[in-house]
Design a protein around this nucleic acid. Sequence first.
DNA 1: ACATTATTTAGATATTTGTCTAAATATACA
DNA 2: TGTATATTTAGACAAATATCTAAATAATGT
Lengths: 93, 93
Amino acid sequence: MKQQAIFRALADPSRRRILKLLQKGSMTAGELAHAFDFTQASLSHHFAVLKAADLVCTQRRGQNIVYSLNSTVFEDISRLVMNLFAVQEGREK
Amino acid sequence: MKQQAIFRALADPSRRRILKLLQKGSMTAGELAHAFDFTQASLSHHFAVLKAADLVCTQRRGQNIVYSLNSTVFEDISRLVMNLFAVQEGREK
DNA sequence: ACATTATTTAGATATTTGTCTAAATATACA
DNA sequence: TGTATATTTAGACAAATATCTAAATAATGT
């Protein structure tokens, strides 16, 4: 689990918005792009950052690439945040 | 609650390390600075970012400024992360 | 094989961010 | 009041990041 990649990815508002869009279900790169004013290229960059953090998974379907939330990292992130703030009852086990 | 400030603050590894140090208890700016190779000025900058996100609180004690974790935001952050990943059972209530 | 559509990659540029040094502010104490 | 200590602020600079345009890759259909 790449802690730094995760926090970096979450730091950008557009990327967080991408994640929220994906909550409603998978979307192709093109569909996602419609929700933003950026060029598709810029969006693609954000996808790459999200992928580097394992926050999304991709899957090709014909000419499209379908993005979906990787909710398995959710636990990891929760733990990360916990560990940042849990005021030292941590360390158990 | 300043969502963007919070995520931005957490994105830097030095700042996350500061938070972890503060888990063990309050520390003065100077004490914190010892744990890093940066100049005190640089650290001070990080403090400012953490404060802007309400992640730490400060309190002057004589010539020192004492930093401590503001664990009340912890809930906020948990919720933020939840909302990013909770796959749409959200919206209840 | 060629043209079309969907997406990513490369390279350029502007903005933001992290760090530094030097100067400013604030408290303590003689 | 003056000096020492602790911390922050200001300004400069380099590195990282977000965005763009143009070119490259990949699949589809003719």
